[in-house]
Write a protein that binds this DNA or RNA. Structure first.
Length: 294
DNA sequence: AATCGACCCTGCTCGC
DNA sequence: TGCGAGCAGGGTCGAT
């Protein structure tokens, strides 16, 4: 479920509730939650135990905890929430969630951190952190080196990203969702940004002007900023993330999930079409697939 | 090299 | 009431 704004809310929750604590034990349920960690779940749990959580970072939809230990290299514990992952901060005696996949206890005997994930597309993995001691903000775990900067990253290069869009033979929405080009955008915010920019998602990316693409990227950042501002309001101290949804932002959506309801700009009913095995929502009047013929 | 569909899961809703 | 189809905001992999 979560896209960049929701993952950022989770990251902030980790900063508040987990950073600075020492992990005592990690219990993993099943193989699948650690499937991206090649040595397997037992190795992951063993390496994590006893380490201090020094920081919580994010790139796009990926989160990682920087784990430190005396005389050892820093290590990144990567967390991806997939479609349905949640991180919960729970009292140790709280009832076990139905889809609990991982549970951390801490040396301070405070509240536990739990990873709950119904659809199991999420998971945990360990990854080295390159150039430790260098610029920490630029240090991204090697396992996600292929993930591009997101629009909030100081490293994000809008002009270079526009060039990538212009060089692609694919539909512009497909490029927006390609995490190697720009990260953090998912189906909801892609549709919302396209609506704001009045661009049809199936238009060839390369057919759009540099100015249109730059505008689209600005809209993408703007809509995610607005969602983040509202997602923060739904924060509950008991949870690192409340429910994986966009908090109160759902009521602000202009296109996504609004099939048949009037476009707030022109009144034309929003259309839903199938695209990339998903759904796309758009205004057929404001967002033309091709220039109307005269 | 770039592109695109298949696939990985569980649970809910809808129509028959 | 039961049952299958379709759908859900993720990423990766293999075939072209």
């Amino acid at each position: 479920m979560p896209e960049l704004p929701e993952v950022e809310v989770v990251r902030r929750g980790l900063v508040d509730h987990v950073v600075g604590r020492r992990i005592e034990h990690l219990e993993l349920r099943g193989e699948r939650v650690a499937r991206r960690h090649q040595p397997g779940p037992a190795d992951l749990a063993a390496q994590v135990a006893g380490r201090q959580v020094a920081a919580a970072h994010r790139r796009g939809k990926y989160l990682w905890l920087v784990l430190t230990a005396d005389e050892e290299e820093d290590l990144a514990l990567l967390i991806h929430l997939g479609m349905s992952g949640q991180l919960l901060v729970s009292p140790a005696d709280a009832a076990e969630e139905k889809h609990l996949r991982a549970s951390f206890t801490f040396a301070d005997a405070g509240r536990d951190l739990r990873f709950v994930d119904q659809r199991t597309f999420g998971g945990l993995a360990l990854s080295p952190l390159p150039n430790a001691g260098g610029d920490e903000r630029a240090s991204v775990p090697t396992a996600i080196a292929h993930i591009a900067a997101d629009p909030f990253d100081p490293c994000f290069d809008a002009a270079a990203t526009v060039r990538r869009f212009q060089a692609s033979a694919s539909a512009v929405k497909r490029v927006m969702l390609d995490q190697r080009v720009v990260s953090g955008i998912g189906n909801i915010y892609a549709d919302e940004a396209l609506w704001r920019a009045r661009i049809h998602g199936e238009r060839p990316s390369a057919s759009l002007s540099r100015a249109s693409l730059a505008g689209l990227l600005r809209h993408t950042k703007d809509v995610m900023s607005a969602a983040l501002a509202q997602g923060g309001t739904s924060f509950d101290a008991l949870y690192v993330n409340v429910n994986g949804t966009s908090g109160y932002f759902e009521r602000s959506l202009e296109a996504y999930g609004r099939a048949g309801r009037p476009c707030s700009r022109c009144g034309t009913p929003i259309r839903r079409v199938s695209f990339m095995n998903r759904s796309s929502y758009f205004c057929p009047r404001c967002q033309r697939a091709s220039r109307p013929r005269s």
